[in-house]
Design a protein around this nucleic acid. Structure first.
Lengths: 332, 332
DNA sequence: TTGTAGGCGTTATCAT
DNA sequence: ATGATAACGCCTACAA
């Protein structure tokens, strides 16, 4: 690989000059600039980004921390971020923090070690304090789908509880009383919030919470299947289900099919969704929409602003939206 | 950020010594090793990977080139690669080459500029020659879902044509003759191959190819919907469809639902699949399986072998597999 | 066992 | 307008 030195020699100038034409900094005579360009072409020269980063302690790179690569949800999230960064000419580094705080710390460290110019964190397990501490450092970052006090201006938030309540109320308004809940893993804050929405809706409508109507799963299809099976075993007479994720909803449908249950004839279904898997099911299921795509886009553009030292337009939290389809029937 | 120099000073040794304990190279007295470790702890020292890479021209990193982030297919691919690399303690850099050769070149360049220790390329548009040229360089790489002459030992291949033929034959054996084809974009080799499978099956069974039974789409849901609509407009009497991607299949189902067509009553469906979206549809659709997950895993482990200078076990190409479900009915 | 010093490919500060 | 030269943080002969 040709280095700046080779270019300098071939062009008969100093490395400093080459660097200047490279970065279009300072004044250079057109003649020499041309010579340098020619040399670069001839040697097929590409600046070494590592050396560059080392020298400037910046990298033309932004880092993204996610918790998984699996599933359309993260696909969509990454794709959206990538697109913005393409426009900004930034290289995107993605790092996965699995399910633990340690692992997220590691993911974050790697990215900061790489001297990213900015970060987008979809971090579920880092402590608020760590984040606040991170905010002392100078590299800008945005928190995706998270709310931490004192960092409001960096948070792209969503009202999960509100959304859950909206969904369950929809069911109640259609006459349902015995409503099952496919809940997400209790360790996750957002899962707890979605569950709280369920609780609130019931409470406000004076329906007692029956824990045996709730089953927890890992947000995935298989888990949804099992959770649904458990509940149905205990309560064959439920008239509706509220699913806290699309994948779990698919799992529930797997079971329904197996048991020849029809939706919404035998059971009504409402679910969270973000990537419209729910519209692939038959019948298309009514959902509350978690707009991860728009949120990711917002996070990206907000980060871009930060990196360009532009003032941050106020970040408003995203609101849930009910998408009525064909999976809820009204009970007389 | 503390640097090696700070550690050295605090521990009262030279930077070289610190480097030695860091890399566990050479002999060091236990006492000093401890002092160094203590110093590192105290300063919360983490070696700068950029500097390291610059010095060693390696990076403990592997690069992955894909064509998109969108959809479960790439999710699965990335997740699988990531998992292997986690085990190897390698950091994964992913770069997206959109739809052009130039863009793939760029993606590849970025990765090599970053001095990746190895590469996995799911590159659709790079020329064979470029790949062969790349093979002259010393950084090892594996080609995922691609076959290029002279690089056989680096190719993880799949018999797309074979798979397509298998699918269409299945339809024919069930008595179908008027079979539509939802084809992928003609620019893509694998899409062409999948279409060739269609042609071959027809030919071998003495059915004339009718171009108006074929419509091309971009492998996506919306495209599948439209393509299916076009064909159906021209030929309301088809009895079966062969879809070259899961997403297009979903799109076709969207249309069927809209037109109150029932599967397999009104029309039989067979599709390619890799991430079992097809099992979410009702009825579950029969597919030929493209095992991207296993292939990605294989690519990863093969690359690991290469990077560890282990001999490469022979790479056998993956075979298609028919997954019978409920979307094909036999015509009398 | 440990230290010295040069190099990796850039940028950036002085000079000139 | 251009050239020395010292960083950037680490590795690695070569010496001691």
């Amino acid at each position: 690989m040709a280095s700046i030195k080779d270019v300098a020699e071939l062009a008969g100038v100093s490395r400093a000059t080459v660097s200047r034409v490279l970065n279009e900094t300072g004044q250079i005579k057109e003649a020499t600039r041309d010579r340098v360009h020619a040399a670069m072409k001839k040697l097929n020269y590409r600046p070494n980004p590592l050396a560059r980063s080392l020298a400037t302690s910046s990298s033309n790179t932004v880092g993204l921390v996610v918790t998984s690569y699996r599933g359309s949800f993260f696909s969509e999230l990454m794709a959206e971020v990538q697109e913005e960064m393409d426009q900004q000419g930034k290289f995107l580094l993605v790092s996965r923090g699995k399910r633990s705080r340690e692992s997220e710390q590691l993911a974050l460290q790697r990215l900061t070690d790489m001297r990213c110019d900015g970060l987008i964190l979809h971090a579920r397990n880092l402590y608020d304090e760590e984040l606040i501490e991170l905010a002392q450092q100078e590299t800008p970052f945005i928190l995706l789908d998270r709310q931490v006090e004192g960092l409001e201006d960096r948070c792209i938030a969503f009202e999960h509880a509100e959304a859950g309540k909206l969904a369950v109320e929809h069911l109640i308004q259609h006459g349902h009383q015995k409503i099952a809940c496919l809940a997400g893993p209790r360790e996750r804050l957002t899962a707890r919030l979605r569950f709280q929405g369920y609780e609130q809706a019931l409470r406000e409508h004076h329906i007692d919470l029956d824990e045996s109507l709730v089953a927890e799963a890992d947000y995935d299809r298989q888990g949804g299947y099992q959770a649904m099976a458990e509940i149905l075993e205990r309560h064959p007479d439920i008239t509706a289900v509220y699913s806290c994720s699309e994948e779990m909803c698919v799992g529930a449908f797997d079971l329904f099919r197996e048991q020849n249950m029809t939706v919404p004839g035998d059971i009504s279904v409402i679910s969270f969704d973000s990537v419209s898997i729910c519209t692939m099911l038959t019948p298309a299921v009514t959902t509350v929409h978690f707009p991860i795509k728009e949120m990711a886009a917002k996070a990206s553009s907000a980060l871009s602003s930060l990196m360009n030292h532009q003032p941050l337009r106020k970040l408003d939290t995203f609101k849930p939206e009910l998408r009525q389809r064909e999976s809820v029937r009204t009970l007389k």
